[in-house]
Design a binder for these strands. Sequence first.
DNA 1: CCGAGCATGTAACACGTTACATGATTGC
DNA 2: GCAATCATGTAACGTGTTACATGCTCGG
Lengths: 177, 177
Amino acid sequence: MSKMSQTELAVLGALSVQSMSGYAVRAAITGTLGHFWGESFGQIYPTIARLEGAGFVERDVAGKTSGSTFGLTLAGRKRLVELLAEPNQSAPPRNGTLLRLFFGSLLGPEVCQQILDDARMRAEQQLAELDAIAHEVRAEVRADPDARYRLLTVLAGQHSARAQIAWVEESLELLTM
Amino acid sequence: MSKMSQTELAVLGALSVQSMSGYAVRAAITGTLGHFWGESFGQIYPTIARLEGAGFVERDVAGKTSGSTFGLTLAGRKRLVELLAEPNQSAPPRNGTLLRLFFGSLLGPEVCQQILDDARMRAEQQLAELDAIAHEVRAEVRADPDARYRLLTVLAGQHSARAQIAWVEESLELLTM
DNA sequence: CCGAGCATGTAACACGTTACATGATTGC
DNA sequence: GCAATCATGTAACGTGTTACATGCTCGG
């Protein structure tokens, strides 16, 4: 699977929840998937157009005076499941913070501590957001068992953020020893 | 800072440790920085050429019959510190595993459990590698305090891998409830 | 002498972001 | 009527990977 079809996957997924405009797809992705996925307009519209050409997506102009609504066709839903089942090929990691810290001796301990503090602050902020979302989603799960899957992605973010914070603590100790 | 200068940063960093060929830069990056950074030949050679044009890197053909050695100039070392000091602008995250699990209800619990097991296996394998490296680097730190910075990046990987494993455990429980 | 690995590069393609252009709708 | 937001798209640019082409050198 090319990387492009990762974008297709995200778009098809968004439209599988409900039909909506391209603009709304973007909003749905940055809002709901925002903690682990991102797409820009420049990707979304061409992708929708390609999916429409391939018969996976249908445009419903209907009586609307402006804008259109896009929805999955049957083939589109099948294609979505197909893409979901493919193994995830992850891109090589690129962590700018670690790259900087690796050469930290050229920067000095003070600057490195600042970089670490920044990382901790970002992680703490993200953790707070995720805690709030987790609370909501846990409530949803009681009503709809399928909401578990959404909860999984929130849990992943929480674990990751907490690990980041613990790492910063340990690292600061190591630097000030 | 453009994203390109992230590649410049990695290349300058590699050459700051010692002068070497472009081929060796690639080996150094995939080897030593491999757990949090990746570069391909197609990026490295043009980047070295650009750095050479800008006067940050010097080519030393010397008496060698083939190949050349690249080393940092004074301006190059200054440039490296400059880039290191710039704030890290991280790319929007793209986690294919989470994207799939988010739409897990379309795949069913069994497939999702398999995805989680895969993730755990990869994390465990990475953790084992990192544990070994950490052992080595801790020994180096006793001789050279500057090796701490290398240790930081290894610690980050360990925390991240352990978090991943803990997340899988919790998620599997949630799915089999 | 021949294959494996060292070494340098380029070209084609894929991917992605940003900025721009354009217009409709809606609430004040 | 005017501003904010919804909505659709394109063009330019930067970035990055892959595959290819080429030649050296060194050990067996």
